[in-house]
Amino acid sequence: MRNAIAIFLKEVRIYFTTPVAYVAFTVFTIVSSFLFLRLLGSFQRNVLLHTQRNPGLLKYMNFTDQVLGPLIHNIAVVLVFIVPFISMRLIAEERRSGSYELLMSNPVTPAQITFGKYLSALLVLATMMLLVLVYPLLVSAYAEVGHVAWETVLSGLLGLFLMGAAFVAIGLFFSAVTRSQIVAAALTFCTLLMLWMVGWAAVDNTGLTREVLNGLSAIEHIRNFTVGRLDLRDLVYYASWMVFGLFLTHRALEAQRWR
């Protein structure tokens, strides 16, 4: 455990001395802010529309459900693009530069390497969740009417974090099987893209096929979280990917010791 913490601290240090974390935060914030402003704009238009034509509907206009929920749902797609960038260097870079030899010749186990590195990427991910928190905070600070349903927002962020954590586990595995960061990122991106797009295929199908395809889609599983509903199925879905990714990473590192 102590070794895992040492590796965690080292990785965090590298994330924040190189531009990696800052670039991820910047890109993430720019895209999220754009999405937020779009959703906010369309919400405002709807409010204006209803005040003129149908004032009775106004009391059904809910800021959290119409702006923040969709925002988190959209940011989930942004993570498909950003997570490969965060996870690609974790192990691939060490193997390319030769610093991996340090880990191999010291009393460190593959499990400690896996956990230490995974946790460091989760810290970067958690920081991004805090950045998302800025939008509801801004709204609750400046909105003259209405309020933010914090339970729903936090549940949405939890879902977003769990999904990101599942993505990072997948990215960590691909970083463990190649020396090239580009290859690691490409394979991760491709996998995450499939996990997103499989939901599109669901639309064309009915019955069981539709259920299965939806069940496979990483983005679909965040829907419940964004409306403040914690469903065991969603938790199990993300936890499965995390365990699966970490297990494969551990196997890959273990196998390399014997090559």
Binding site: N3, A6, R13, G98, S99, Y100, L102, N106
Partner: peptide, 23 residues
């Protein structure tokens, strides 16, 4: 090793501290 196993993005002290911890 033949090529020192260094992390180019760490400073010397941070690197040695990490190496010491995993030892």
């Amino acid at each position: 090793p033949e090529t020192p196993p260094l992390y180019n993005d760490l400073d010397t002290l941070g690197y040695l501290r990490f190496a010491g911890r995993i030892k």
